[in-house]
Design a protein around this nucleic acid. Structure first.
Lengths: 206, 206
DNA sequence: TAGATTGTTAATCGATTAACAATC
DNA sequence: TAGATTGTTAATCGATTAACAATC
């Protein structure tokens, strides 16, 4: 039971640190510093040190951080030493792209089931998986004990499907539907909407 | 020349308000309130009012906000009354999904060119567009005057391609590559990395 | 040792909330 | 009129930065 609650904004930066540390490691580096990381991730060095210090003393004065060690620590903190099974809901274009996405390798996640309600898509093979009938989704997810879902259904269906996912025991949803989902407290949501990302940038254009 | 600079964190919420207002409008509503919006987007009513008040007085005491009017205002503020041409770089799975994505309709964006460096993909047809040779990218983007790019190339190529995009005059990049890009000041970046989204949530799981 | 860099404190800066007068 | 809801102010809360003693 750690006393202090770590702000979510800090948690959100940790995966970016992790990604960058792995990148450095691939390039053969063994050690880095808050200053070097700062240049790579566009967060101030002081903030990186402060963020990491929430969880322990991972560095050494004078030398900085051992990259392999810090990666290990971040994996522990983020709960991704293990591999999480993920349910993918929606076998459209975005669902297919996620199913084939190589970036999940070593990220701590594996898509282990895919659902759709379109009879044409059900039974279709995507990679090693076969698309399952969404009508059995709650049952299958619950009995597999899956906690994480990626949602790539149309906006019109998203809330309804989300309610079912919650019913099935899902507690984290990566939401690709362009709509704000309503979930009970304790269920995590991360939204990915390309239009929102683009619109946020055009404010600054001319 | 508006005096006060509006914080980016506020700008980031505006597209979500816009999305929600359009949703309400589709459902036939004409008027809404900060309280109703608050329940829909998970931002406090006070904050919604404060955010909007940065740009003008759009509501009426007692009745709230006219939805159509507020949508118009947000389109103006976000600079998306017009349609922006967007260059898509990378014709892999994610690039294909974006090229076929229906969610850009009325969002203010249109993919108008696609590039890849893979000879097998060049000349391929994706929807109405034909994949162009990345070697001509800088020239083509610059002469078309395109300012916005979506980047879906592998991490290993992302920084190099980004440098070329900047050279071509791109000032806003929606980055799907799992890497932090380095760009000169004034170039906007929004990052979309599903692994980062998922890892941020697993911190809270068990 | 001298130089480098951490972890942490205190100061600053910025964002959110609560409250309410104004007014539709 | 009475009820509802805005826009805004002041208070609170939280996040970032600057600075530096500790120490590798």
């Amino acid at each position: 039971m750690d006393a202090k609650k770590v702000p979510d904004i800090i948690i959100g930066r940790l995966p970016v640190y992790l990604r960058t540390l792995r990148h450095l490691k691939e390039q053969g580096a063994h050690t880095t510093s808050s200053l070097e990381l700062s240049r790579l991730v566009d967060v101030s060095a002081a903030q990186i040190r402060k963020d990491l210090s929430q969880f322990g003393e991972f560095g050494k004065q004078g030398t900085g951080y051992n990259i392999a060690f810090l990666i290990e620590k971040l994996l522990e903190i983020l709960n991704i030493e293990r591999v999480w099974d993920v349910a993918l809901i929606g076998a459209g274009d975005v669902g297919h792209a996620l199913a084939h996405y190589q970036g999940f390798v070593n990220s701590g996640f594996r898509i282990s089931m895919i659902f759709d309600n379109d009879p044409v898509k059900i039974k279709q093979q995507i990679g090693l998986l076969s698309v399952q009938d969404a009508s059995r989704m709650v049952e299958v997810i619950r009995s597999a004990g899956i906690k994480i879902a990626m949602l790539t259904v149309p906006a019109s269906a998203a809330q309804e499907v989300t309610d079912k996912l919650v019913e099935a025991g899902i507690t984290a949803i990566l939401n690709y539907s362009p709509i704000s989902l309503n979930v009970p407290q304790g269920v995590q949501i991360q939204n990915i909407d390309p239009a929102v990302g683009l619109q946020r940038m055009t404010y600054y254009l001319v």
